[in-house]
Nucleic acid binder design. Structure first.
Lengths: 330, 330
DNA sequence: GCAGACTTGGAAACCGCTTTCCGGGGAGGT
DNA sequence: ACCTCCCCGGAAAGCGGTTTCCAAGTCTGC
């Protein structure tokens, strides 16, 4: 590999000068030398060793993003938003996927800490297990004590800046909208009980239903993905309206109904949450709660970079979008 | 930040010993000292500085993946496959998205080179512009001369190990299958002419049609995404069967037809390419050519890591999957 | 009981770059 | 003409690890 020393030698200048020319310093370098250095670097095909720069500068230009599952469009959209924001700041992005294993999340924070990344974004639902959350907090605290910055998209459980989708409120508003259409018997495809996002959406929905004086919805737990929705839909009783706590599950539920010859929305109404772009052309079009995912990702990065006391928690409201997967009852 | 020296001091051992204990060395360290070091590291919350390690070792445990667009499920699946493979090797992943700008791709290779990443994966179609490809090759050559490894998912145009989806053959086979259903008048939503993947699929399809002695398909160019498919579909003439060069475009086309009240497959048949998992529940179910995207991503990583002379080019066959978006003609 | 082979701990060089600290020379002021 | 002050180039000290090379101690075998 070509090193800065090679360049300096070829240009007949000192290391210091070469460094100043090539890697943005506050110090000026005379035009003549500057040209010599640039030419030498070009001829030799010099590429600065960023590991060395990071070490010497004590700061890196990399940020870390930890998501649950990149193939889930929810995370892809959030990650993309954050990555676009990072790109405008000239930051590189390291992406880790936990495949929904909270231990992996902790491990990633440790690793990203070791990388001395400038900021860490934890994207995705927290889990209800206080022990796990506690260990994650510890790891995060250690990282932040070393000067690291962090933010989270999800729930404010980590003591860091957080972009928090208004899951309860969004689900509640959806519930009111659906009740407004005349539905009275509901079911919730609730996902895993320990996932806070899933639990919040389920709870928000159920509470709103209760406030309206309607019978409590049937709650069916399952996985937080397409197959989870598919499986859960099979267990739904006589509800006229089914709320899947995310769009991907809703699509699974729709598939299950289709296979069984149950018509949506004629026989049963189905709603989801998130308004995943990739699914906007689904038939029937999904009623859902729209979340500005890309913006949320970008905002989280912003928060992390400007981290300040006290901790900022930004609620992001969802917008109920009624589409053809639900029908009005008589 | 806690450094190795802090740990060594606290444990009352030398730097060398502490290093050997904490960061896997071939050398043995006595149980007593080993325990002291481990305890000290734990108490202090030591995290090795990977930048320093990378510098000292001259090798990093990071790989880079460059994709066009993470929110496109095609790339998400490929990236995920590669990331899973990387995780089993204990490698970290740096992801860059070019947002379909070839210049960005070149810039990323330079940056990843500067990071001295162990391997670079270029995921996605090459472009037809030889000047751009040439500059990318140059950058890649420079990287590889410094000991970097590289592989590509796409076309064998870079002189590196390549996982090449059999776009022409897959499209040709699809064409034959569709012709076998009795279709004779075809249109191709061909995407951008300069994208090699799009062009190959289009060409493979057209060639097969010609070989069958059928009239040449109408070719409509446009963007390679959902909206591109939507727009292109509007310009299709009297074809009975439309081939969109990827699934996402096909979904856009289906949306366009739906809006116009054109029934699929009754009035027109539609096929895509890729078999995107997220779209498997689409209605009508999409006829397509299945590509094992995750495996391809994983395989590309393998190739990169084991890079050897001569360059390996692996063709990956697609499998035609007939679903309800196409119909048999009388 | 002792030579020689192994083991294990530590000192120090080194990885490639940044940046502080010096010093020399030219510009500007009087 | 002389003295400051400023500007710019270079030497060298880190940044936080890894690893080579020594030296001292421990084991073995005869």
């Amino acid at each position: 590999m070509v090193t800065l020393e090679d360049v300096a030698r070829q240009a007949g200048v000192s290391l210091a000068t070469a460094s100043r020319v090539l890697n943005g310093s506050t110090r000026q370098v005379g035009a003549a030398l500057r040209a010599r250095v640039e030419r030498a670097a070009d001829e030799l095909g010099y590429r600065a060793n960023i590991a060395a720069q990071t070490l010497a500068r004590g700061a890196s230009n990399v940020i870390g993003i930890v998501v649950h599952d990149l193939t889930d469009p929810y995370f892809a959209a959030l990650a993309d938003g954050a990555m676009r924001a990072a790109a405008t700041e000239g930051l590189l992005v390291m992406v880790g996927t936990t495949h929904r294993d909270p231990e992996q999340e902790i491990a990633y924070v440790a690793t990203l800490n070791a990388q001395r990344v400038r900021a860490v974004l934890l994207v995705g639902s927290r889990v209800a297990d206080p022990a796990v959350t506690g260990r994650l907090r510890d790891e995060l605290t250690r990282y932040r004590q070393g000067g690291g910055r962090a933010a989270c998209v999800g729930q404010d459980l980590l003591g860091v800046d957080t972009v928090a989708p208004a899951n309860r409120e969004g689900a509640a508003e959806l519930a009111r909208a659906l009740a407004g259409l005349g539905h009275t018997r509901f079911a919730v495809l609730a996902g895993p009980p320990h996932l806070v996002t899933a639990a919040d959406r389920c709870a928000g929905f159920a509470e709103a239903i209760e406030e309206l004086g309607l019978p409590a919805p049937q709650v069916v737990h399952g996985a937080f993905d397409r197959d989870g929705g598919y499986a859960a839909a099979q267990q739904v009783g006589d509800a006229t309206c089914v709320f899947a706590v995310n769009d991907v599950m809703a699509v699974g539920a729709l598939a299950a109904y289709r296979e069984r010859g149950v018509r949506v929305p004629e026989d049963v109404s189905v709603a989801g949450f998130d308004d995943i772009v990739t699914l906007r052309d689904h038939v029937p079009a999904l009623t859902t709660v729209r979340l500005p995912l890309q913006d949320m990702g970008a905002r989280a990065l912003e928060l992390a970079l400007n981290e300040a006391e006290p901790v900022v928690v930004e609620q992001v409201a969802g917008e109920v979008v009624l589409r053809e997967s639900v029908r009005r009852m008589t």
